[in-house]
């Protein structure tokens, strides 16, 4: 079984030392700058056999102590042969919160990227069909951003009222 930190070491020789790593319990995480994200993910899939993309999600670090970036987009990868798991974290910042889409690598990224776009407003360049997946089409904001109030901006009550007389 390939150790995750050997993969990370290979990544650093391949892509430079701005890739940092961290770990919590048995989770191995590698932090990748956004301009190298697609290259790193392609390399991980094609050279290291991470053939399954378990999930894509994001975290908003607004008002978070010691945070340097607004969002982290998080890719959870799994090597189906060696059962090795790797977490790739990519920082993204406003106003141009955008990343290259990984749908060409993993077909399953389609709806995951749509969900991250729907909830956080992060654009995935090259996605074949980037539109909202959970919220209604006419929704204009991104509800999992930390500066979006829990109760919303009144979208939930922006509907016509049916009365007895007219229904």
């Amino acid at each position: 079984m390939v150790e995750a930190n050997t993969t990370v070491a290979d990544l650093r020789t391949q892509f430079g030392n701005e890739l940092t790593e961290s770990s919590f319990r048995d989770n191995h995480r590698v932090h990748v700058p956004p301009e190298k994200a697609l290259d790193v993910l392609t390399w991980l899939k094609e050279q290291r056999g991470f053939d399954m993309l378990v999930d894509i999600t994001a975290v908003d670090y607004l008002e978070y102590p010691d945070a340097t970036d607004r969002f982290h987009v998080i890719y959870l990868l799994l090597n189906m042969t060696t059962k090795e798991r790797l977490i790739v974290k990519v920082p993204v910042n406003l106003p141009d919160a955008a990343l290259p889409s990984v749908v060409p690598l993993w077909k399953g990224a389609d709806w995951m990227e749509r969900e991250v776009y729907d909830m956080f407003g992060i654009d995935f360049i090259g996605h074949p069909d980037l539109r909202r997946i959970l919220m209604p089409e006419e929704f204009t904001t991104f509800p999992l951003r930390k500066d979006y109030p829990l109760k919303g901006f009144g979208e939930r009550h922006n509907f016509p009222v049916l009365t007895r007389a007219e229904s």
């Binding site: 607004l62 141009d96 654009d123 500066d147 979006y148």
Partner: peptide, 19 residues
């Protein structure tokens, strides 16, 4: 109610441009 301080100059409510 949330004691939230608006962040100066933050343009969060503009949706990103779709390619």
């Amino acid at each position: 109610m949330r004691e939230m301080v608006p962040v100066e100059g933050l343009t969060i409510y503009d949706p990103p441009k779709l390619n």
